[in-house]
Design a protein around this nucleic acid. Structure first.
Length: 587
RNA sequence: GCGCCCGUAGCUCAACUGGAUAGAGCAUCGCCCUUCUAAGGCGAGGGUUACAGGUUCGAGUCCUGUCGGGCGCACCA
């Protein structure tokens, strides 16, 4: 309907050009919007207002000309001029119910929208370092990313979801060393645990596995491990960073490359398995788990650096190699190879983003925590220097969820082991409520997450409102049989003209908006729009339920009402599937 | 100090991307279960959209400045 009006108005604008009312070279942007207020009809256009100036006419006068040029349309019952120059269109109520048949035909495909035009998109999200379990901070990115992936797919994009595994670098060495130290404790060694090591309980669990597999074989005396190591923080002249680096070095030396690698692999495998399981239970799944180490080992990073070097975008200073990112608007140049010969995370990231485009994706979307925003210019700079289009990269920032517990801000730190895990959250408030809570907010909106409230008010969570609407419909359909009726879809569809109440018209109108909503939400990367839409649709259903009895004696009306609520049920399912929430049949 | 994000009802958030009288939920106060699930419905109160200018037919939305909050500004990842 909306697109049809759009076309008609474009034709009208052409006629206005021919008549010389507006300049022939005038750029016309036709905009048709569903109205907010029913008194304004079903759709409205501001065309007369935007063209008033080039036409040199008052908006209302131009609106009158436009209305005069409109061809007669059977489904449009009324066209009127309103306010400062809006043109309002009133759609015939009966025509609105056509959507019911569409929904029942297209089923779980209703709402699919060609907005994506089959463009291939790679969405990379979560990508938390595998140094510990996911915490509630990761939850938002996970829920947002997964919903976005579903939404883009539904809107006709060819989507791939990827998790970038940062399995290289110093943090991983710290992890492996932490595990090994806990293992030594299990073996019976005694020593002060480094203040910069990972202290969470999960480290013990991995260490225990290590012990079960290897017994004492990897044990070294504590005094050897700590011999000559730089003092830890809190000691005279101590430094926690230098201390842990020294311990890493000792661990590698004492264990040897092969055994250290064993500890390393066990730790990372264990944590990644846990993360994958955790996410999967949260309804978050990935097509690829892309390893940073694989980039290193296959020489992709070196190749990327070489390419930059040949383009003269790299220079040496103070023993390190620097990328000239300032040439592309970054604040300062960035190190890609440190003076100790190790490549930085940024170096892998250059290679990684280049690799993403090489794999043929037209658009690559990175979902990052807002604390990484300062990182965007350098990645875009690298893409330019690699002679790829920096606009192919869309970085979507997700603001932090600020956690409150008992009215106090709860601080999170993976290192200290004090955090609320995503798993704990799911157990406390449930996966559905958690998914909904996260995704019902605009991603760039700062968000307060009161854990006590989430827990105590879990029954007040709006997600249940939507699920309840779905369960209610299922319940009504169940009642049909109990009352000795059979559902007759064909009769219902043939008698849609029996539907006439305001609630019925409203529901049909709402259903018809779904496909358009999908396209708009997808192009704006805003899955929260789906959540709000579903709330409104559920509200329509609940109102209807309270004002009208569905299971009536008269068969035509009864079946017409049944197909209407069947359509609502279907759209609730389709919408909930996008935001990763289940549609229960009973509550 | 510089940069990015944000500021909307008592609280948590929307506002179709510049449209008409800024809307929901929670909380507060009234009603509605002998009828398909009351985890629901109907209604009331609650707003100078942080503040001050500007742009235009029209601003919560765009531009400038001020105030307030979050986050960055590494040879960490």
């Amino acid at each position: 309907m909306k697109t049809k009006l759009n076309q008609i108005l474009i034709e009208v604008a052409d006629q206005l050009k021919q008549q010389g009312v507006i300049p022939a070279d005038q750029d016309v942007k036709v905009q048709v919007d569903p109205t907010r207020d029913k008194a304004h009809g079903d759709f409205a256009t501001n065309l007369a207002m935007t063209l008033a100036k080039p036409a040199g006419l008052p908006p209302r006068e131009l609106a009158a000309k436009i209305i005069a040029l409109l061809p007669a349309q059977s489904v449009i019952t009324k066209v009127e001029m309103a306010g400062p120059g809006f043109i309002n269109f009133f759609v015939d109520d009966q025509a609105k119910f056509a959507v019911v048949q569409q929904v029942l035909q297209q089923k779980n495909q209703f709402g699919q929208n060609g907005a994506g035009q089959g463009r291939s998109v790679l969405v990379e999200y979560v990508s938390a370092n595998p140094t510990g379990p996911l915490h509630v901070g990761h939850g938002r990115g996970a829920a947002y990313g997964a919903s976005l992936v579903n939404l883009l797919g539904f809107a006709g994009f060819d989507v791939t979801a990827e998790y970038y595994v940062n399995d290289a670098g110093r943090q991983m060495d710290i992890l492996a060393t932490s595990v090994w130290l806990r293992y030594l404790e299990i073996c019976g060694e005694q020593f002060p645990f480094p203040s910069n090591g990972y202290k969470g309980d999960y480290i013990y669990a991995i260490a225990r596995q290590l012990f079960d597999q290897h017994g004492d074989a990897l044990r070294k005396p504590a005094f050897e491990v700590f011999a000559g190591a730089f003092p830890d923080e809190g000691q005279d002249g101590g430094d926690k960073e230098k201390h842990i680096d020294a311990l890493i070095e000792r661990a590698k030396a004492l264990l040897g490359g092969v055994d250290f690698e064993q500890v390393f692999s066990l730790a990372i495998k264990d944590i990644l398995t846990d993360i994958e399981e955790d996410l999967s239970e949260f309804g978050v799944k990935f097509n690829n788990w892309f390893s940073e180490r694989s980039l290193m080992h296959t020489g992709v990073v070196d190749a990327a650096l070489e390419k930059l070097q040949q383009a003269d975008k790299i220079y040496e200073k103070n023993g390190a190699l620097w990328f000239r990112s300032t040439e592309y608007g970054d604040e300062k140049d960035r190190v890609v190879v440190r003076d100790n010969g190790l490549k930085t995370y940024f170096a892998s990231d250059i290679a990684y983003h280049f690799n993403k485009l090489e794999r043929g994706y037209e658009t690559i979307i990175d979902i990052w925590g807002s604390d990484h925003h300062g990182y965007i210019p350098r990645v875009k700079a690298a893409m330019q220097a690699m002679e790829t289009n920096p606009d192919a990269l869309q970085v979507l920032l997700v603001q932090f969820a600020i956690l409150y517990r008992g009215g106090e801000r709860a601080q999170m730190s993976t290192r200290s082991g004090q955090f609320v895990t995503l798993r704990e959250l799911r157990e406390e408030v449930g996966t559905d409520a958690a998914r909904f809570f996260y995704v019902a907010r605009k991603s760039e909106q700062h968000m307060d997450f009161d854990l006590d409230l989430a827990k105590s008010q879990s029954n007040d969570n709006p997600v249940y409102y939507i699920q309840y609407a779905h369960a209610r419909i299922c319940s009504v359909l169940g009642q049909l049989a109990e009352k000795g009726y059979a559902l007759d879809e064909a009769m219902g569809l043939a008698n849609l003209d029996q539907l006439s109440t305001e609630h019925e018209v409203d529901l049909a109108t709402k259903l018809a908006q779904f496909p358009d909503l999908i396209g708009r939400a997808a192009l704006a990367y805003e899955p929260h729009q789906i959540a709000y839409y579903l709330k409104e649709l559920a509200h329509g259903l609940h109102s209807y339920y309270n004002s009208e009895h569905f299971i009536v004696e008269q068969a035509e009306l009864r079946n017409a009402r049944m197909v209407l609520i069947l359509a609502v049920q279907q759209v609730l399912q389709n919408g909930l599937a996008i935001i990763g929430v289940t549609a229960p049949e009973k509550m």
